[in-house]
């Protein structure tokens, strides 16, 4: 299939942390919006964020009324022996006629496939399915229709996977990056006892502290000082993976430099590699971010469709650390 034919099927999947952000995403040109309930069932369980049942139902109606789809993320791992909250979330997503549910946990996938066979299943990036064998298992066993690929693959690896699987693939094109395999990272729980995998929060804000002294800003997570930013220096998210630490005589971002993924210039290659959906990270961000990033990627996808140059550089001010990277899609360190 040519890039031109595949473009007809390309879907721009955009984040929404609130109903206002969902409306902003739809109005800015999102084909699809993903969001979650205001509890531990989704991996962006931050204070003041997410949707009540009533808000979700109204937002799905709004999106459908404007020709957009809604995917609901129920993508944390249920606590052993206490799956009721997650089971209820699956039932509610099905009752609300959402276009799909995004799930990571094997048990929850099995539950959804058995109890709600009409519900379209997407495999969350939190499942870290990064090879054809793993993906085919989910497809054959649970009828998963789409897999969100982890941000550890090159474009050629994505193409190789797509040749061996029988489901759609969704790839991240913009937003915050995790250096770890999603769903497997324990840094947050090591420092605070809470994790995105089980509780929906990476670096829970209750464990974060900032102190400003003479224009130097110090950030702490639990018992760890993770950053000291001097006057004018950018401050990254308060996560251990973006912290600056001393190793030997060098102080640096040991795990990962703070930067946001921006794969806008790789859209043609990703389409050629067989990706059918482009995902923008950032449910924890504002409606202003949603509007700007969705408009930028709508313009980029439309530019690819018409053969025009892809507009770039519009999103630097929204990026962590004020800089962007193509991440693992082009592994220059290999």
């Amino acid at each position: 299939m040519t890039v031109g034919k595949r473009l007809d099927k390309v879907e721009l999947v955009c984040p929404a942390g609130t109903p206002a952000a969902l409306r902003a995403a739809v109005n800015a040109g999102a084909d699809t919006v993903y969001c979650g309930f205001a509890d531990e069932t989704n991996a962006r369980n931050f204070p003041g964020l997410n949707f009540s049942r009533k808000e979700m139902s109204e937002s799905i109606a709004f999106a459908h009324g404007h020709g957009a789809k809604v995917l609901v993320a129920v993508n944390t791992f249920p606590r052993a022996g206490r799956p009721e909250l997650w089971h209820q979330a699956v039932a509610d997503v099905a009752a609300m006629k959402a276009d799909a549910i995004i799930v990571a946990d094997l048990g929850l996938l099995a539950y959804a496939a058995e109890k709600h066979p009409e519900l379209r299943l997407h495999l969350s990036v939190q499942a870290a399915a990064a090879n054809p064998d793993g993906i085919n298992f989910y497809v054959e066993r649970f009828r998963v229709r789409r897999v969100v690929l982890p941000r550890v693959l090159t474009v050629s690896e994505i193409a190789a996977i797509n040749r061996e699987i029988d489901c759609e693939t969704e790839v991240f094109v913009y937003g915050g990056l995790c250096v770890m395999a999603e769903g497997r990272c324990s840094l947050s729980s090591y420092a605070t006892g809470l994790s995105p995998n089980m509780n929906g929060v990476c670096s829970p804000p209750g464990a974060v502290a900032y102190v400003e002294k003479e224009r130097e800003l110090v950030s702490r997570l639990g018992d760890f000082t993770i950053n000291r930013a001097g006057k004018g220096s950018p401050m990254p998210y308060p996560t251990l993976c973006k912290g600056r630490f001393c190793a030997g005589k060098v102080t640096s971002h040991i795990f990962e430099d703070p930067a946001s993924l921006d794969a806008s210039e790789l859209i043609p290659q990703l389409i050629a590699a067989g990706a059918t959906a482009f995902k923008i990270e950032g449910r924890q961000r504002s409606r202003s971010y949603t509007d700007a990033v969705v408009r930028a990627f709508r313009a980029a996808v439309d530019a690819v469709a018409t053969g025009a140059p892809i507009p770039t550089g519009m999103l630097a001010s929204l990026s962590e650390g004020g800089s962007t990277t193509r991440g693992a899609y082009q592994k220059t360190w290999r």
Binding site: P204, P205, E212, L217, S233, P234, P236, R287
Partner: peptide, 23 residues
């Protein structure tokens, strides 16, 4: 990120306020 905004104290409360205002 750009240091145009600095928060101190109860970060959880600040996030809740920011998200409530945004919505």
């Amino acid at each position: 990120f750009s240091r145009d905004l600095v928060v101190e104290g109860d970060v959880e409360a600040v996030l809740a306020l920011r998200n409530a205002l945004d919505d």
